[in-house]
Amino acid sequence: MQKIKQRSPKQFSRKYAHWVLLAPSLLFLAMVMGYPLLRGLQLSFTETNSLTPTMSKGVGFKNYQNLFQSPGFVASLVVTIKYAVSSVVGALGLGLATALLMNRTAKGKYFIRAAITLPWAAPPIAVALIFTWMFNPQYGVINAGLHALKIVPKETHWLDSPTLALPSLVFVTVWMTFPLTSLILLAALQSVSKELYEAAKIDGAGTFNLFRYVTFPFMKPTIYVMTLLLSIWALRRFDLIWVLTQGGPVDSTTTMVVRLFRESFEFGNLGYGATIGTVGFVLSVLCTVFYFLAARRVEESTR
């Protein structure tokens, strides 16, 4: 049978309609994200100062060499990893606990749902403002409360202590991120079929085994996605850290993004700043690759 090669214009537009639909958003992203990304990568191989941006000169991998030899950068890399890991673990842990709790109590569910909307919806800058005040060493309500319970000594310094600043920052971060985590985990929890629970219960599974063998495997993909998203958000987070501690004291909360911002906008080393940004981007990509490998393993094991 002969193929009919001719197509009417209408059929043609039907065939390529998706490109017409996608064109605005893709072009826009190419201009506002793709182009700056490439320029940023290129910038990381140059020495460019913000005072004389036209006198940019290529220096090959020199910025990268300097970067990994600089104790300041290595320290900020360590801070970033500590911050990301602890805030992700914290948000997942508290989020999972809250999700399980909401799944258990019919009455409490709506109450918790409404309550945890507050940290989720509050703007980071407003959050930073209130926590700065709450963490105040002399008059802050956190010290007043914890001291009354005899947990901490009087006038404990939080955000301006080199040892406690990062944990305090992690606390605020977890406070902000656990609600969404728990709500999404709850959605996954509710997709576990009731029959499966009944069957496991008849087989004599206890609460713990029920969680381990029925609930958890079902939630695994969602937990993985949330881990990925939380990690990427942690690697990118700037506003909260900047307003709460500005990276201090003595760089104890200087994450890579804070260092990048300082390097580029305070010291004007645009090339070097872009190098830090590129390393941060590579870290995010690595997280994503890990995620896809892990997700594939889950898929294969459940097949």
């Binding site: 998706h18 700056p36 320029r39 910038l43 872009a274 940004g277 994503t288």
Partner: peptide, 28 residues
């Protein structure tokens, strides 16, 4: 729609979430 580059387009949309704003800041 079904088209060959669909996976890639989806990836691009997701990849935007991985970019640190701070890296894009200078070129932007």
């Amino acid at each position: 729609r079904r088209f060959r580059a669909k996976g890639f387009v989806g990836f691009i949309m997701f990849a935007t979430q991985m970019l640190p704003e701070a890296l894009l800041l200078i070129p932007l």
